[in-house]
Design a protein around this nucleic acid. Sequence first.
RNA 1: GGGCGUAUAGCUCAGCGGGAGAGCACUUCGUUGACAUCGAAGGGGUCACUGGUUCAAUCCCAGUUACGCCCACCA
Length: 1066
Amino acid sequence: MDKTFDARTEEPRLYAAWEAAGAFAAGANASRDETFSILLPPPNVTGVLHMGHAFNQTLMDVLIRWHRMRGFDTLWQPGLDHAGIATQMVVERELAKTNMRRTDFSRADFTAKVWEWKAQSGGTIVNQSKALGASMDWSRSAFTMGGAPGGGEAEPGPNFHDAVLKTFVEMYEKGLIYRGKRLVNWDPHFETAISDLEVENTEIDGHMWHFKYPLAGGETYEYVERDENGVVTLRETRDYISIATTRPETMLGDGAVAVHPSDARYAPIVGKLCEIPVGPKDQRRLIPIITDAYPDPDFGSGAVKITGAHDFNDYDVAKRGNIPMYRLMDTKGDMRTDGAPYAEAAAIAQGIAEGKREWTPEFIDTLNLVPDDLRGLHRFHRKGHDDGPQAREHVVRQITEEGLAVTVPNPEWDTADEEGRMGLNPVLPLVEQKKIMAPYGDRSKVIIEPMLTDQWFVATDKIVGPALDAVRAGETEILPEQHRKVYFNWLENIEPWCISRQLWWGHQIPVWYGPDPSEPFSSPPKFFCASNWSDAKKAALDLYERAYPDSKVSIEEFSPKDDSSWPKTHRDYEDIRAMGLEGFEELYPHSKLEQPRRWRFSGSMDPRTGNRSITIKIGRDPDVLDTWFSSGLWPLGTLGWPDDTPELKRYYPTSVLITGFDIIFFWVARMMMMQQAMLPDSLPRLEKIPFKTVYVHALVRDEKGKKMSKSLGNVLDPLELIDEYGADAVRFTLTAMAAMGRDLKLSVDRIKGYRNFGTKLWNAIRFAEMNEAYANGSQTHAIRMPDACQTANKWIIGETARARESLDAALGAYRFNDAANGLYAHVWGRVCDWYIEFAKPLLASEDDEIVQETRATMAWALDQCLILLHPVMPFITEKLWGETAERTKMLIHADWPDYTETALADAAADAEMSWVINLIEDIRSVRSETHVPAGAKIQLVQIDLDADGQGALDRNRALIERLARIEAITRADTPPKGAVTIPVRGGTFCLPLADVIDLAAERARLTKARGKLDKEISGLQAKLGNAKFVANAPEEVVDEARARLEDLEAEATKLAAAQTRLQELA
RNA sequence: GGGCGUAUAGCUCAGCGGGAGAGCACUUCGUUGACAUCGAAGGGGUCACUGGUUCAAUCCCAGUUACGCCCACCA
């Protein structure tokens, strides 16, 4: 055997052997009925393996391998997530390299490109997981877009597409999914809505501007400010109301100014109109001053402008107060360019404000209240763009120039002399530099714009109940427990989930739109929700035939050439208007197309027969579903649902989900809701819940505790680490550091240390090989636990049983760090440090029985190490397993032991070996402290010894002599002069070191030892002297203290005697 | 603003009601035929602070301080 394990060449070979043997397949090595199943949280197709994956896959693999060896019917279900935005982004970036954009392609052509990309470079992460040793059942690999159009036959795994559409349709039919115009988070970069969870709030340096909204008609009022005691601190006549804002560009869409009902300062002007101070002077809009509970009188001026279409708070206020809302921006977040010129739009809005006409939701999109000079500009100036001032900057400038900014005195004005004041302004506009929280898209890193658009939502409040109940009842256990609270907190306050995305890559929403028969040319549309075209068509035909009994109805699919954006831009709107109504006006003269439609309604009447025929084109919603909607179906979808597959019966509910805390909301909570919503009510609750346990692991950080990130350059690449130290070392490190509930700081030193641990094991086996422990005369003997006589052999058998029990207990409780550390301590600290050393003299024995027994014990004990270590360090252990003997099974399928400490441990042997170990350690310690050369052999003198001690000494003489480097053990009645005393349980030993001993050093040693002993003795005495302790403490605690005191006192006596002798010597 | 968490050896962290632990680092010694990716011995801690509960507190409770993280709409 070589001196070390060559991980780089051996690991891939071993992995290939496992794969070739089908060792990972579901049910492989199953010898009992119980199942154990884990779903891999599907990595993004775009993904590469990072430390987080390595960590979470290691933990899963440990559990899977452990259960597989225990004979469970295991399934580790792998797969990939199509990752809508992320993937589309990657492919668009690729296209950008050749100066192409997504919109240069048709939707079908673009998605074909994505599929192509997926086939080429998607899923590299799969092979990377293999390097880690992950034993997933690759034959069952799933994909969240599996079965979707464009994927082709090559796409393996279950038909996820069918499952997703079925889910949508069912949820729609049950009223769990609805469409509505609501304020959503809009990503202007990707031009899509995103969910609340995809928004990251980040603190940035912002400004707060203060502007004056003049009262209509130059009206004035007494503005009075008072302190807490009601004393007037400011009184002035004002003709304006002061507003603070961080987003001046949204002023254009204001519908009102709100103050708190209790705010006395503004009471005189509530109900009056004020003017938005932007736009052409003669077309300024007037808006009402209203009251609402939302404004905080103590913040800013206490007055808030209400822009319902671009702010979540304002949206609520506007809905409460029926305040008009106007969308100001297009899908890119630029100021709108569509619709009528400003003058026309403003006049209509003015009519609404004055109560002359009613505001309807249609105005949100049809009225463009952006002044002509600002149309087409960006919302605000973007850092790093050299395109000058944008809407925000212009608004601020215009207001300031007009003198409508709230001002503060210019500090320079006061200090300047008269001449210096030339060209200075006595006052400056009030602009506060302020930290503000800005919403960013988690992928685009662009500021999110709240936008009023039509989207699809899941009525989460209707499906959240079972997800909460399952955890509350403990039917799903969340570990560590602190995450339960986080889970509850989020679910108890859950908001509707926006699931539509204006992307191309994803599951297209299975809803077709058609006209309402009573109002075929105006909104709202009729929905035909069906999982395929023919069902949708059938539903449409059914509806329209009933609606138009006199006509012959035919249904066709509407397919616009370009359905790239939704909602439609102005240009699309014009196009559609131009396409006209195809000759049906006579029948429905009131029709007026005001909005883009995804349907066509046309008809004709034969003037001779009077027969009417109607053609209706219904069009499919171009949007796709949020990726998390499909990954939310991961448990059912991967197992073949909606078909009633054997896998579904067998492996659902799954045993444990291992995932990071960052996706508890995104994924875990949604899976908990969706599986239970989709499984039939007739199923027992426990059979609907997707996981018995959710183990939430912490974050892997760098060694300084920083989050690993590309921009910081502190990313540790698991593949590089595996290449350098081997997968086993990386796995062991991650397992050993996986203490529940705490982030782990990963350092290369630690990995190196565990690589050394592998080498240690390797060399222990090498030693056994050299000593023919495994050979035993025949090539293929079975390695069985021997019936040992030698104390050391009995002892290691008991220790092994202990190690197995505590390992199983640790893994059973997901205490991975305890599992790894226990293994480390057993293999290195007990087997290598002590047992192999003990075995050396035994193997050198002239008694062949002792030699054979020791060989057999060693082979067995080391075999157990291989078995117990295998889940954590699969490669090196499998290699050694094959190296040492001809085996009937690979280690990956070896039987996990079930022996117990009770059955195997021998208390007498344990006591004896700990006596021996203590003696050896004491002798070594004295040798080292008295500077006896390490190589020198010395005498050991036994002074007195009780029967147990004598027996232990006699039985282990060879071990003690070898490990403590003792020349010979002799007896004496009294310690020789100058000897160093070594008290042991039941006796005293001496090391006659008169010629080498340093009296002063020995005196110091004894004094120190006494000091330590005395301190502990007096502590124990005080404790035992306390009547309350004796009365109240459990009996065994008191007994233990007494016994310990006795031991310590005996030792102290011996040390005292040694001190006296030393004194006499001097 | 709400919630959660963490403070233990120089560093990274276990432990968590009855004797302060591990790995790394450090010091000294060591070519004892498994292993220098090693072995042996050792130094190093008022277990953040203040109170409380208890016969007993690093551990439980309350508060303080410091540092993290998550959620949230203060214009």
